[in-house]
Design a protein around this nucleic acid. Structure first.
Lengths: 194, 194
DNA sequence: CCTACCGATCGGTAGG
DNA sequence: CCTACCGATCGGTAGG
């Protein structure tokens, strides 16, 4: 049995776990120390403040979502394919990086002003990728022309951001079926082909 | 200028305001006292614990949603009309009772086990109303028969529960237009009429 | 990474 | 509803 010291990355990951489960204000540095098998005060050899930890976890979440969007755009130019990749990528981030995703989505309000502003900008950029892909789908004739682009993006993201609230990987619905289900829900309502 | 004493209801309402804005763990009893212009310790002449306050706010939220669902069912028997009333009622609760709605939706995790279980049951009952109305829409032939009832209810509620994250009453979209927009998004995708 | 602390703040009580 | 507290816990530092 090897007892290794914790790395800074271990600390950030554990913080994500607790922030996602109990919230930032619901997590004390002593809770976090316990999670890692050390004293709360020992955490300060890795970080300089509790807020720092939140910033790192939230930024990790933001990066995961942004990278997913970039990949979707690089993979193909076909709008509906892009939309499916955006949905699949988002589902992947939520399911594979639940803690970072949840903290990014729910705990950004606990950040102080400047850092919160950065997060809001990252969210806007991410949402704008959805908007532009929806717009491309309209231009290509695959989505109906009277669609409200902004609203559609908001509704789709509402569905995606709520997944962690109900989805259980042990359930009957696997990841691909989930993506199909969401795509059907969204695109059937926006599809021109009748 | 009349300086009146605060009632218990005032305390609960103010608690809802702060819990919704900063979260339960992000709100101290002294914060709440300041909000009402009195000492933190004075709150204990109205209530017996901080957790009590959370229970009351969350239950107020639960009741508002349940009453909205009951009203929708009583108003009409036509499935699509019922669905519209459910959506309109939900939008009304979120916009007119934002603090209770937010606390109900986001802060129930801070409740201790027993009370949290009550909330989860209330949510299930509410969701089951959505499911049964969707089922009625399928039976009446207005919604397509291959629709996944559970998933459709979850997606619709995901859209509804995210409204407080982006909707601004000062914006161009008024309440009725919001309801129309959501109904179009959901029903067009589920509508049999082509 | 630990021990030993720090001042500040927490939820809550006693007694008016 | 206030004053005056209580013990516990908070984020964080010093010094090893």
């Amino acid at each position: 049995m090897t007892v290794t010291r914790n790395s800074r990355a271990d600390v950030v990951r554990a913080a994500g776990r607790l922030f996602a489960a109990r919230g930032y204000h619901g997590t004390s540095m002593r809770d976090l120390g316990r999670e890692l098998g050390l004293q709360g005060s020992s955490l300060y050899s890795h970080i300089t403040s509790k807020e720092d930890l939140l910033v790192e976890v939230v930024e990790a979440g933001a990066e995961l979502f942004e990278r997913s969007a970039t990949r979707a755009l690089e993979e193909t130019e076909e709008p509906i394919e892009r939309l499916r990749l955006l949905v699949g990528g988002h589902v992947g981030v939520v399911l594979d990086h639940l803690d970072e995703a949840r903290t990014f989505l729910n705990e950004a309000q606990a950040l102080e002003r400047d850092h919160r502003a950065v997060v809001i900008k990252a969210r806007d950029r991410y949402e704008s990728v959805f908007r532009s892909v929806i717009r491309q789908g309209i231009e290509s004739g695959e989505l109906r022309p009277d669609l409200d682009v902004r609203m559609t993006a908001i509704y789709l993201l509402s569905v995606l951001n709520a997944i962690d609230r109900w989805y259980r990987p042990e359930g009957e619905l696997d990841r691909d079926a989930l993506v199909d289900s969401i795509m059907e829900f969204v695109v059937r309502g926006a599809n021109r082909v009748r």
